[in-house]
């Protein structure tokens, strides 16, 4: 499954200072749908190069990190349970950097 991931608000610094990542992910064994929960663990393993605690806390994003799935706040789509589909665009923005 092809996805576009975008990191902003300083989060790009955790993944080689690249804001946009075109990635290919596979459905984990035994799962029916690919969800944000799967995606976060994939990102943590495959994209985050340093300070993962700036991105995640427990099994979800750190409070203060905004997530948009196809330009829609993930709080409207079930957060970790949001189903991800082919060609989706997922944006992560940190609000934690200075103003």
């Amino acid at each position: 499954m092809q996805l576009t991931l975008e990191f902003g608000g300083g989060l790009e610094l955790l993944c080689d200072s690249e804001k946009i990542h075109k990635v290919n992910v596979d459905l984990p064994n035994g799962a029916d749908d690919f969800t944000m929960k799967h995606l976060l663990s994939w990102v943590r393993t495959n994209l985050i190069k340093e300070r993962p605690e700036m991105f995640m806390k427990g099994d979800t994003v750190r409070p203060g990190v905004l997530v948009l799935v196809n330009d829609c706040d993930w709080e409207l789509s079930g957060q970790l349970d949001t189903t991800i589909e082919e060609k989706d665009v997922i944006v992560f923005i940190s609000t934690l950097h200075g103003g």
Partner: peptide, 9 residues
């Protein structure tokens, strides 16, 4: 354009 599937409300 991408709102093919209204997953939200």
């Amino acid at each position: 354009a991408k709102s093919k599937k209204p997953r939200g409300p």
